[in-house]
């Protein structure tokens, strides 16, 4: 799996938000996207997964142009998305949130639900509860688990720890680290916790006013540089 984004531009209505952005994610790598509020991080992710149409440029996934595909067809090709805001189908139970996705994959889907619950064991006791009644942290774990049931090759995570209590943040961060190491899953991560994101990442990108303004190698020692770039 390789994600290649070239000269991508997108926005809302007539307002351009992301302009001329290009980068590549190699298989099994974690890439973090940093930037201040309003820099266009979420908009960029929404264009990559297909919720927003790309105005210009190309998005190739495993060598295939996907920028014209509907979002669900990108998911079937291995591109999973966990949107901002701990989104779940609130009227469905937690179990139904997972089965909804697993339905497409038969027995393999059921196995993946079990695997996802191994990653977030706290969800096991909450399966019968409507997702709308779960806490923010529980919903976020459910959202990541739901994405994993699609058996992704690239997981796109938009602020997975935003507004979540610290103990759950740690669990989610550990899960992301596990996924990238043990399952060789590629991850594209937008995250406000700059220290965690850069330490976990193989590479970090900085968006400024919708344009890619900086890129650098990730790792435990790279947080200082990321903070310095963001302060400029």
């Amino acid at each position: 799996m390789r994600l290649e984004v070239e000269r991508l531009s997108t926005g809302y209505g007539r307002v351009p938000v992301v302009r001329d952005v290009g980068f590549t994610i190699e298989p099994g790598r974690l890439t973090a996207i940093l930037g201040h509020n309003g820099a266009g991080k979420t908009t960029l992710l929404r264009a990559i997964v297909g919720v927003l149409p790309a105005r210009e440029g190309s998005i190739r996934f495993s060598g295939t142009e996907v920028s014209r595909l509907r979002p669900h067809l990108r998911v079937r090709r291995g591109l999973a998305y966990v949107p901002q805001g701990q989104q779940a189908f609130g009227q469905l139970t937690a179990a139904e949130n997972l089965r909804l996705v697993a339905d497409y994959y038969g027995a393999a889907g059921r196995r993946r639900v079990a695997d996802a619950l191994d990653l977030f064991p706290a969800l096991r006791e909450l399966l019968a509860r409507p997702a709308g009644l779960l806490s923010g942290g529980q919903r976020q774990q459910l959202a990541i688990a739901r994405a994993l049931v699609t058996d992704p090759e690239l997981l796109v995570l938009d602020e997975p720890t935003e507004g979540i209590q610290p103990s759950v943040v740690t669990e989610i961060q550990e899960a992301i680290a596990t996924l990238t190491r043990a399952r060789e899953l590629s991850v594209l991560l937008v995250e406000q916790h700059v220290g965690f994101a850069v330490a976990a990442a193989d590479e970090f990108l900085v968006l400024t006013s919708g344009r890619l303004s900086h890129r650098g190698p990730g790792g435990p020692g790279a947080a200082a540089e990321a903070h310095r770039v963001l302060a400029l």
């Binding site: 997964v49 297909g50 919720v51 509907r70 979002p71 669900h72 998911v75 079937r76 998305y81 949107p83 989104q87 189908f89 609130g90 009227q91 469905l92 139904e96 089965r99 909804l100 996705v101 339905d103 497409y104 739901r146 994405a147 699609t150």
Partner: peptide
């Protein structure tokens, strides 16, 4: 039924349903 789950999910959040792999069309 799986169809029922897809219908309820699409009613609640169309974008989230699409990005969960459901063909909302």
């Amino acid at each position: 039924t799986p169809l029922g789950r897809r219908i309820r999910a699409t009613v609640q959040n169309r974008d989230l349903a699409e990005t969960s792999g459901i063909s909302t069309a």
